[in-house]
Nucleic acid binder design. Structure first.
Length: 492
RNA sequence: CGGGGUGUGGCGCAGUUGGUAGCGCAUCUGGUUUGGGACCAGAGGGUCCGGUGUUCGAGUCACCGUACCCCGACCA
């Protein structure tokens, strides 16, 4: 594991990869650019999924499922959207294999060529809107608020575990509404759901805001985003929510009869988060000892390690531990007793730290005699000895405190690395050191592009709920007048 | 797709002027250990990424593939 993580070592990438591999989360698959999510990593994803899904339900979302394969012709309908994805699609051209007539192995049967190629979905707008056309005729059919949990494929040139893989898991919500206002409100509501999830579950402080036109989703009128800062000061887009206007409805001819009996195109939104959130979690909270999981997402919240010499001691300790476990589980916590007798305690300590388990309880003969337990918290690595009497209440509060302090640590880090900047010379220098810079922007894509070309920095968002700076000024690059500051950063 | 780098037991690596492969970790066996990644003794495990060439002889040299990693461009 790389040292000096929080001081943003040059080999931050290597540190990240090591952490993902050693914490047993995922590995590169044999298939180009794809990943294998291992059971422990998947358990975290399942927790994310479960909590998010619960939040969606509160927003009236229903889950559905649409096909993996999308006929190529569906893509020809929304030109702008396609331009955003066409370069990176996997295409199915044949439907049969045969034995190689010239030798061993199998080849694609040339006679089994498909009439029309199928695209492996890079996102499902096109197939969903083709389907919605059949579902919607009247204002009474609206709104439709559907979400699907699925995999998508984007043939990215360069891949990184969790952050950018050829195949990834995500959820994509697609809604249809009778009015523009209602759709815009939904797009806004969903980005707030993501922000809530990021902050309160992932302990990840995020900035909510609008994307600039350059960074907007292909085919959207407005894109809302949550942007997080990683420990190397780079930005990671953690979730997006798009107001699509009537673009897709027009392309796929989805009209409804309104209350006045007139035909009208529906208004749409789409929103998604992906397994990239796993990457965000790792890069935002991990340290040199490994993963640091917020209790709300930890598959195991408390691990107990017995320390013993004899079988009798082991038995007595495990008896006591099962008792403690019961008490903690009654409070709703997930607890694991590490009773493996082939490994020494020190090894177990290191292993569970690597996996980010928030609280470790170690108990030995001394504790058994004194009625105590050694409590170790993963986030600060502090140890203390606590009576087993009333332990469940103590741990309950400790977990809440850990959740809070992980957030606060990340929050403080971000506060320390966001600043206003009004000088172009300063900008060029500071942006490379891993800072978010609040700067004036003249609102033109040209200026944004020039800044990107010169510094690799992009506008991460025009913030709406934190770092909002509605003040007059002049553009950092062009010197033209500006009404507000926006967030610039180098991103993943 | 451009620019670099690396492919050698499960993992991480060494391998000299070309002479027929070694180290650490892990694994297995036995014993001693167990309050922060144990120790001792022994054992098993490799068509050196693939192909072609040079050579009496190639892990080593040449050429052509190929896979992966890093840096760019593209993106959740």
């Amino acid at each position: 594991m790389a040292k000096e993580v929080t001081s943003r070592a040059e080999n931050y990438s290597q540190w990240y990869n090591d952490l993902v591999l050693k914490a047993d989360l995922a590995e590169q698959s044999a298939v180009r650019g794809c990943m294998v999510i291992k059971p422990y990593g998947y358990a975290i994803w399942e927790k994310m999924q479960g909590i998010l899904d619960g939040m969606f339900k509160k927003s009236g979302v229903q889950n559905a499922y649409f096909p993996l394969f999308i006929p190529k012709s569906f893509f020809s309908r929304e030109a702008e959207h396609v331009a955003g994805f066409a370069k990176e699609c996997a295409v199915v051209t044949h439907h049969r294999l045969m034995n190689d007539p010239d030798g061993k192995g199998v080849v694609v049967d040339p006679d089994a060529k498909l009439e029309e190629e199928l695209i492996v979905r890079p996102t499902s707008e096109t197939i969903i809107w083709s389907t919605y056309k059949n579902w919607i005729t009247s204002w009474r059919d609206l709104p439709i608020i559907c979400n699907q949990w699925c995999n998508v494929v984007r043939w990215e040139m360069r891949t990184r575990l969790f952050l950018r893989t050829a195949e990834f898991l995500w959820q994509e919500g697609h809604t249809a509404h009778a009015t523009s206002q209602e759709a815009e409100a939904k797009a806004n509501e969903m980005v707030q759901v993501y922000a809530d999830f990021a902050r309160n579950v992932m302990a990840l402080p995020v900035i909510v805001g609008h994307k600039s036109p350059n960074e907007r989703f292909a085919g959207a009128l407005d894109t809302l985003t949550i942007e997080a800062m990683m420990q190397d000061g780079k930005a990671l887009q953690a979730g997006t929510s798009h107001f699509l206007g009537q673009n897709f409805a027009k392309s796929f001819d989805v009209q409804f009869t309104n209350k006045e009996g007139k035909q009208e195109y529906v208004w749409a939104t789409s929103w998604g988060v992906s397994t990239r959130l796993m990457g965000a979690l790792i890069m935002a909270h991990g340290d040199d000892n490994g993963l640091v999981l917020p209790p709300a997402l930890a598959p195991i919240q408390v691990v107990m390690v017995p320390i013993y010499k004899s079988d009798e001691e082991r038995e007595a300790l495990l008896d006591k531990m099962y008792e403690v476990k019961k008490g903690l589980e009654a409070k709703g916590h997930s607890v694991k007793i590490d009773d493996r007798d082939t490994l020494r305690p020190g090894f177990k300590f290191a292993e569970w730290e690597l996996k980010g388990v928030p609280v470790r309880l170690a108990m030995g003969p001394r504790d058994l005699a004194a009625g105590t337990v050694e409590v170790h918290r993963r986030d600060t690595l502090e140890k203390s000895t606590v009576p087993t009497e009333g332990l469940d209440e103590y741990i309950h509060e400790l977990l809440a405190d850990i959740q809070k302090s992980i957030y606060e640590k990340a929050f403080k880090f971000r506060e320390d690395n966001v600043e206003k900047c009004d000088s172009w010379e300063e900008f060029k220098e500071k942006i490379q050191t891993g800072k978010f810079l609040l700067c004036h922007w003249d609102g033109t894509p040209e200026t944004e592009q020039k800044i990107k070309d010169e510094t690799k920095a992009t506008i991460r968002c025009i913030p709406i709920d934190s770092f909002v700076c509605e003040e007059k000024g002049t553009d950092i690059y062009s010197g033209k007048p500006s009404d507000r500051r926006v967030v610039f950063a180098i991103s993943y």
